[in-house]
Design a protein around this nucleic acid. Structure first.
Lengths: 345, 345
DNA sequence: ATGAAAGCGCTAACAT
DNA sequence: ATGTTAGCGCTTTCAT
């Protein structure tokens, strides 16, 4: 009847202090490995901690310090391979640096994205890493939160916000050049997706075009395939339609691994062999690339670098850096597996 | 010089109260949509909230209420398709119910798994959903935390802990029966992985064997393929070795989608067509199954059901339910795509 | 080297 | 219907 508050074995700092016959400060000192604590005192307090099974209440600590040691990671969805892999690396690296990750799926919703940068995590996290797809630069700049934030992905760089991405245009150019070096000259781009308001397609298409022009090839608009959506079925339909229309191509540069899978499927259905007749180059180098037959050659963003860079930038901000937006380019490589090869003629 | 604490526009409940000329309680009332607030008062307070841009500090609320509205989700890794998909559904459902998810990757580490059920999240989350792979029933029961917990996956059911899984044995049986119905009689199981200490293989192998016996077929130990690891390369090697040794089989039941991809690759390399010569049935029905060519037939656990059931169980516990461990079986289906077909003879 | 006490911002009795 | 105030458990000056 007296000590009503001790529910479920919850042991508080005060309890340890009482047990050890010292003040809370002293207990706090040993919990934090404060340097100037006499060995015997440390031992005595530690004993009390162990006996009572004391664990600091993190929520209380947070309120007192103002630091949450948590970072929100806002992604469109966590089960799409590219995002899943980004989440994995950010999760691992955050753990290493002493942060926990709260995952937020925006599910391609404009409102959900707005919520992320507006208020969603107020006082909950120290910072947020956000991969927007629906809202643009201006809106992000306008709705700037009090919380440190770093952006991921291809959206154009807001001047006021930190940002990490790979050089999409350069990567597309490199991809096309690789295909060109394999004697491919009719290179299809898969695909310009209807309703895609993101910046990435634009940038990639730019690189695609530049590489072609540089090689003295006039880009053929017919080779920029159209798709009605982002699913594998949409991709299959796009390729199938092109074949149907008699459009000739001997290589395809895909906007992501999923569409590359689509190309593999549609090509096989059409009886065209990969890579003998047509090369296909994926983008993202996800688990899909490793799993397909033949294994997919792909442009491979350095996801580990993306994760560490994002965290570097974010930690700066969390430590008080207030400069204008920084813009980091993460490296990528092109990994050749089984879907690209020199054309024999 | 006077109001030193107002850093970075941080607005507190008290500030709103002062601005509106009311008490904190009244502000709190409107923040929480408390019923008995006069309309004009509500309006006045709301105006102050808007003007000041007030957002409740969630950490403080947590400390006061003792509820964190956060759930830890501890998975081996978040970028393996099956786990990624589970994470997605749990994330979505948790959001719907008003919880946030903290993701914890145990990376197949024993210590990381122990940490999860021991103390890792003390006072940080209201409960944890945990998919163990390294630690067993007994250890879990022994290290039982003060925090509500529900287990996912095939580890044997600890009597004291809630648990959701699919009926692995039955699913394997159904899978084999489907293959049998397609006139396949030499069904390989891919694979018994060396060093795999999890319960799942055991359970699945049991169902595999039962189905065979029921059909009057004596299981051939040679058809239980061995693999040195869990990667696709390991799977390819296992199948290739079997073919090399001249072991005949006309179907393969795979322990997961990754190994099914391996089967597709090894079979193609050996010039054996799928599904004409050999059927392959995957397990998990992940994005890999949708992406391959041919698209993979697979045993498909109802991941949405797993997510909602786990959350149901966990919410019970968080509300104080203290009974013994409950054990829920989630449904599954078998989805036939392009890698299974009746054997023509 | 250790102790006392004032917050951190919010909630929830309890009072009016 | 609205106001007062004592915590929630920890950190952190400021004393000693």
């Amino acid at each position: 009847m007296a000590s009503g508050s001790r529910s479920a074995g919850r042991v508080r700092l005060k309890d340890v202090a009482d047990r050890a016959g010292v003040s809370m400060k002293t207990v706090s000192n040993v919990v934090h490995d404060y340097e100037f604590v006499s060995p015997q005192m440390r031992e005595r307090v530690q004993a009390a901690i162990d006996e009572l099974g004391y664990r600091p209440n993190l929520t209380a600590r947070r309120l007192a310090t103002g630091k949450t040691s948590m970072i929100a990671l806002a992604l469109p969805v966590v089960d799409q391979p590219y995002y899943a892999e980004i989440a994995r690396y950010i999760g691992e690296e955050a753990e290493r640096r002493g942060y926990r990750i709260i995952v937020e799926q925006t599910l391609n919703g404009v409102e959900a994205e707005r919520a992320v940068i507006r208020d969603r995590e107020e006082g909950l996290v120290d910072g947020v890493i956000f991969h927007p797809v629906r809202i643009g630069t201006l809106e992000i700049a306008r709705l700037r939160p009090g919380t440190p934030i770093v952006l991921l992905g291809e959206s154009a760089r807001p001047l006021t916000t930190d940002h990490v991405m790979i050089d999409n245009t350069q990567a597309a150019r490199d991809g096309v050049e690789l295909l060109l070096a394999e004697n491919r000259s009719r290179i299809a781009f898969l695909a310009d997706v209807r309703g895609d308001i993101t910046e990435s397609t634009h940038l990639r298409l730019l690189g695609y075009q530049e590489a072609l022009l540089t090689a003295g090839i006039q880009p053929d608009p017919e080779l920029v395939l159209r798709s009605d959506g982002f699913t594998i079925e949409d991709g299959v339909a796009a390729i199938a339609a092109a074949i149907e229309r008699g459009i000739h191509f001997d290589a395809v540069l895909s906007r992501d691994d999923t569409f590359a899978m689509a190309a593999l499927r549609a090509l096989q259905a059409a009886g065209r062999s990969v890579p003998d007749e047509v090369s296909v180059l994926g983008w993202d180098d996800t688990v899909l690339a490793h799993s397909s037959t033949p294994a997919l050659s792909a442009i491979s963003p350095d996801k580990f670098a993306i994760a560490t860079t994002a965290l570097d930038l974010l930690e700066d901000r969390m430590k008080g850096y207030e400069g204008t937006g920084r813009h980091r380019i993460a490296p990528y490589t092109i990994i050749e597996r089984g879907t690209t090869a020199a054309l024999q003629r």
